[in-house]
Amino acid sequence: MQQTEFRTLVYQYFFFGWLFRDVTCGTVFERAAAWRYNREQARWLPTYMWRWLGWGLAFYGLGGVLEGLLDAPTLSMLFYVPGALSVPVNAVIAAAWIGLKALPGPL
């Protein structure tokens, strides 16, 4: 059994693109099969949303601790920025999840 590299595991923990297939190439039947596969894989998107929410809140909290208790606003910026970036990432994940659940498949 082949061991997966740590950086690959971290990437797969935070980013979900590896779960899905491309629906823009292939025959009509292949595109329809890829769409069905992607709709099945959409069940994992809420898990990614929770991960990004948890890490975002943790980073934002660490930024607050550094700014409030240690009076280090410059250092706290290193934690506020990743915490704030988790909001648009969650918006993209939510849009992908809603789109895969609500939109009809390719023709």
Rank of each mutant, 00 (worst) to 15 (best):
Y11V: 05
T74I: 08
F6N: 05
W52V: 00
G68Q: 03
P46N: 09
V87P: 04
K101H: 12
Y37I: 14
G83T: 08
R31H: 04
L85M: 14
G64A: 15
Y11D: 10
Q41G: 00
V89A: 14
G105T: 10
V10C: 05
P82I: 14
Q2H: 15
V65G: 06
P73R: 02
Y13P: 03
E40C: 12
W50P: 03
P88Y: 12
L9I: 15
R43Y: 15
W44A: 05
T27M: 04
T74R: 11
W97K: 03
L53P: 02
P46Y: 13
P106Q: 06
V23D: 10
D71M: 13
R21E: 08
G17S: 11
F29N: 11
L103P: 01
G83S: 12
R51Y: 01
V81K: 12
W35A: 12
V92C: 13
C25Q: 13
L66D: 02
G105D: 06
G99R: 11
T4M: 08
F20K: 10
V65E: 09
Q12A: 13
V92I: 11
G61E: 08
R36A: 11
L100Q: 02
A102P: 00
A72K: 04
L66F: 13
P46M: 14
L107H: 11
P82T: 14
P82M: 13
D22H: 05
G63L: 01
A42T: 03
Y11M: 05
T8W: 10
A34I: 06
Y11C: 03
A58E: 09
V87T: 08
G17M: 10
P104D: 15
F79I: 01
Q2W: 14
A96C: 10
W52R: 01
F59G: 00
L107K: 13
F15A: 06
F59Q: 07
N38V: 02
Q41V: 08
W18N: 06
F14K: 10
Q2I: 14
T27Y: 05
L69T: 12
L107A: 15
M49A: 07
Q3V: 04
R31I: 04
A34L: 07
Y37V: 11
T4G: 04
V92T: 11
G54D: 05
L9G: 06
R7I: 00
R7S: 07
I93A: 03
A72N: 04
G56R: 13
G17H: 11
A32G: 05
Q3Y: 07
M77C: 02
A33I: 04
